[in-house]
């Protein structure tokens, strides 16, 4: 049976891992290569590195970072942040990443998903969605782009369904409302998306307690749970998370 995945997320800025609340107030969480190797050794199922500066200068840095990470990390990892072209994806995959995540560029140019899937296979193509709950309609979420700074008119569930058809192989679904709050994932959002698509959904944003992970999997229908604050600052180890989930009957790779 396929296990549910525990995925620490490393937001990288100026070669450091940082973590904020609701995408703001960043706090230093360590060296990305060191932290990556530690997670790889301690039983994480996968890692996500997001270049949150995503400038032309940081692009070169992130390729070098991926190369260093790949020398020490023998679990899969995804890289994202400012990726716009198939050639950039190619460079990151060659440097050692398993998958890349695209966000703003896919909204602006949905054909990027198809081009990437045809060349690398859809299992390499992660669509990251930053979702914000609509103030008027509580069961609707809008897609935000440019690191969450720009709301669009696009409905999150419709975008997820369209992206699957275009070639996305997985959805990294971040609730901007829940991100960094440690108050739990937005499982109405996770459920709405996981019911609408047949590709895996990674729940992201809001993990604070062990039961939040369970809820995202059971209530939200998530295939994987992503977290940062609760693991970087060593509130819980990966092993504690997995033992907790296994104890409640969730299949994990312990």
């Amino acid at each position: 049976m396929l296990t549910k995945r525990i995925i620490p997320c490393l937001d990288v800025k100026d070669n450091r891992v940082v973590k904020g609340v609701n995408f703001l107030n960043l706090r230093d969480a360590g060296d990305p290569v060191e932290l990556g190797a530690r997670y790889s050794d301690s039983g994480a199922d996968e890692l996500v590195f997001l270049d949150i500066t995503a400038t032309i200068r940081s692009r070169k840095t992130i390729v070098e970072l991926v190369e260093k990470v790949a020398e020490n990390v023998f679990i899969p990892f995804t890289v994202g942040g400012g990726i716009q072209t198939v050639d950039q994806i190619d460079e990151l995959l060659r440097s050692g990443a398993e998958k890349v995540s695209v966000n703003t560029a896919a909204v602006e140019n949905p054909a990027l998903l198809t081009a990437a899937a045809q060349r690398f296979g859809n299992q390499c193509v992660v669509l990251a969605i930053d979702a914000r709950r609509s103030k008027e309609q509580p069961d609707r979420w809008q897609v935000c782009v440019k690191a969450g700074s720009e709301p669009t008119d696009i409905d999150v569930v419709e975008w997820a369904v369209k992206a699957e058809k275009l070639g996305a192989g997985e959805i990294l679904l971040t609730s901007m409302d829940a991100d960094g709050t440690k108050a739990g994932y937005d499982n109405r959002l996770n459920r709405a998306v996981s019911n609408a698509v047949n590709i895996p959904v990674i729940a992201s944003g809001g993990a604070g307690k062990l039961e939040h992970l369970y809820d995202a999997i059971v209530d939200g229908g998530a295939d994987a749970v992503l977290m940062a604050s609760i693991t970087h600052f060593e509130q819980y180890t990966i092993k504690q998370m997995k033992e907790y989930l296994a104890g409640r009957g969730i299949a994990v790779n312990l």
Binding site: M1, L2, T3, K4, R5, D45, E46, N122, Q123, G169, E170, N198, I199, P200, D223, A224, N253
Partner: peptide, 27 residues
């Protein structure tokens, strides 16, 4: 769910050399 993405348990036959000393089943 497609892709088949993540860690799955593989039953390892005794007579496959790649899995010598690995165990009966592993993720």
């Amino acid at each position: 769910t497609v892709p088949h993405m993540g860690w799955n348990m593989v039953t390892l036959p005794d007579d496959m050399e790649l899995f010598a000393g690995v165990g009966k089943e592993k993720h």
